[in-house]
Amino acid sequence: MPVNKPVDEPFTPEQLRTAWLEYAEQRKKFQAEYQMLTQPFEIRNNVIVVSLLSPIHDTMLNNIKSEIASFLRDKLRNNTIQVKGELQASSDDTRKVMYTPREKFEYLMEKNPMLKELRDRLGLDTDY
């Protein structure tokens, strides 16, 4: 007698979002988790990719990833669903901190090259 394999039913992005938000509401008392769960996510071949803002969110997601996947698999009747996080690169991390007046002025000159001409014409010293 053959063993019946559970059927992996297809689901729509709307069904997934509804189930995801239902799970998020259950975690609302954990404010940091709730914030992470309300971040945007993508669906890539039954893999839900959550946009994470910090390494802390990555750790939190890893702690509850199997629970979320189980909830969604039961809710949507599809055992192929997986959850994964992707850390979003922040533009602030790549920016150099400017300390000296010269560094600040050079940064401003990149934004507005006319400042160099103004400095030269007026004979200004940026290293005061």
Rank of each mutant, 00 (worst) to 15 (best):
I43Y: 11
R95T: 15
R17C: 04
K116V: 11
L52Y: 00
Y99P: 00
P101L: 03
Q82M: 05
G85D: 02
S51R: 06
E110F: 06
V7D: 14
P113N: 14
L76Q: 08
E110C: 04
I81W: 04
Q31M: 06
M36G: 00
I48D: 11
Y99V: 09
M60S: 02
H57E: 11
E110N: 15
L53G: 12
A24D: 10
Y128E: 15
A89Y: 06
V49K: 10
I68R: 00
K111I: 08
G123L: 07
P113V: 08
T100D: 04
N46Q: 13
F41Q: 07
V7S: 12
Q88V: 05
R95E: 15
M109H: 10
L124V: 12
Q26D: 07
L115M: 09
N46K: 11
V97A: 11
M109L: 09
I56S: 02
T18V: 14
P55K: 01
S51H: 08
E22Q: 13
N46H: 12
Q35G: 04
N112Y: 14
K29Y: 09
P2A: 10
S70V: 03
R119Y: 02
K84P: 02
L72C: 01
E103H: 01
T12G: 11
T94L: 07
N4P: 12
E14I: 12
L118V: 13
E67Y: 04
E106M: 06
P10W: 02
E14K: 15
K96G: 03
K104D: 01
R17I: 10
M98I: 04
P2T: 14
F30Q: 09
N78L: 04
I48K: 09
K84D: 13
L124Q: 09
T38N: 13
R95S: 15
F41P: 06
R77D: 09
Y128M: 08
N63S: 05
M114E: 15
N45K: 13
S91T: 10
L21D: 15
S66V: 03
R102D: 07
V97D: 13
L122S: 09
M60H: 07
P13N: 15
S51N: 14
A24H: 05
R119A: 10
V83Q: 03
D125V: 10
L87Y: 13
V83L: 07
L87C: 02
Y34W: 15
N62P: 00
L108W: 13
K104V: 06
E117V: 12
Y99M: 05
L52K: 00
I56Y: 08
I43M: 08
M109S: 11
M36Q: 07
L53H: 05
L16H: 15
R27P: 03
I48Y: 13
E42C: 04
N78G: 02
I56N: 06
K65E: 11
K5F: 09
K5A: 06
F71N: 00
R44V: 12
V50S: 08
N78F: 04
E67V: 02
S90G: 05
P55M: 01
L52T: 01
L53V: 00
V7P: 12
P10S: 11
L76S: 03
R73F: 05
Y107W: 07
M1A: 10
M60I: 04
F30T: 03
Q26G: 02
F41N: 07
F71L: 00
Q35V: 05
K29H: 05
H57K: 01
S54V: 01
F71M: 00
R102W: 01
